[in-house]
């Protein structure tokens, strides 16, 4: 039973949180509002644009006309394309390999399993900086993968967190289902594809969102590996806009940010349930 006083305090808390939320969301408001400002207003410090305009968005795709002759192309569509290619390929590759490895750890007994599992867990602890410089040497000097999609996609296969998450989930799938299939003559791959994958879909969904965010928003690794503008991903591309010489780009930069961010936020909102489940799993089983 909620007392009258209790209801009042819930009301007060709600109001307080809503006010807090408005302040909290202010940077987003700023981003969106700046992206709709005209050049004249960019530096006025106003929050709401007086004459909202889509000119900044237009420039991203059709070039920035300055003066009479000069048209600066941003290659933004390229950045977007690169980000999509890298993210989608990473997701497909990593989810497949993670699921296979997790299947082995969850449902097979094999020699060395415990040791291998622990080795894997330790790799989760390694910070990226520990391997950054040799990785640069490896990818540039030995493999020659600088400026390639491969360089951004392949290293993703070392995903201990994903394997761990899926292993924990697959352990809850009853082994009897597998045994029955085995009697029907199904091999490991068929069992994996027909039984394990369909039943693991929720966990795969969670992992997919996590991976998506990680790859889509990655900054350091593409910064090191990608040196050619046509190969930039969104994060690197937007970061480079700042450094363009002789251009005033606050508006374009925010337009680029809105387009890079809003789809992600919508996606996560749409899949909020799966996302939350993944968070909790991470919290308690780590």
């Amino acid at each position: 039973m909620v007392t009258r006083r209790g209801r009042l305090s819930i009301y007060a808390i709600s109001v307080f949180l809503c006010i807090l939320a408005v302040f909290y969301a202010f940077p987003y408001l700023w981003m969106i509002s700046t992206s709709f400002k005209t050049d004249d207003e960019l530096y006025s410090g106003s929050v709401i644009p007086q004459n909202p305009s889509v000119i900044q968005y237009y420039r991203l795709f059709f070039g920035h006309q300055v003066g009479e002759e000069y048209n600066l192309q941003y290659r933004y569509p390229d950045y977007y394309k690169n980000s999509i290619i890298v993210t989608v390929s990473s997701l497909v590759l990593v989810l497949t390999l993670d699921a296979l490895a997790a299947f082995a750890f969850a449902k097979y007994n094999f020699f060395g399993k415990q040791v291998l599992f622990w080795i894997m867990m330790i790799t989760m602890m390694l910070p990226v900086y520990a391997t950054l410089i040799p990785s640069f040497y490896l990818f540039s000097r030995i493999l020659g993968w600088v400026n390639s999609y491969k360089a951004l996609i392949i290293p993703g296969v070392v995903d201990a967190y994903g394997i761990f998450l899926l292993t924990q989930y697959m352990k809850t799938i009853p082994s009897e289902l597998m045994d029955a299939a085995r009697i029907d003559g199904a091999g490991p791959l068929r069992i994996f594809w027909n039984i394990i994958v369909p039943l693991s879909r929720p966990a795969l969904g969670t992992l997919a969102i996590f991976k998506f965010l990680l790859v889509w928003n990655d900054y350091l690794w593409p910064l090191v590996m990608i040196r050619e503008e046509t190969m930039y991903t969104l994060t690197i591309g937007i970061a480079q806009m700042q450094m363009r010489q002789g251009m005033v780009v606050w508006g374009v930069q925010m337009a680029a940010s809105v387009l890079a961010t809003v789809p992600v936020i919508l996606l996560v909102l749409a899949m909020q349930k799966q996302f939350l489940r993944g968070l909790t799993a991470g919290a308690f089983k780590a």
């Binding site: 003066g67 010489q245 002789g246 251009m247």
Partner: peptide, 8 residues
């Protein structure tokens, strides 16, 4: 050139 293009 920069001035010309950014501040015509």
């Amino acid at each position: 050139t920069e001035l010309e293009s950014a501040a015509p």
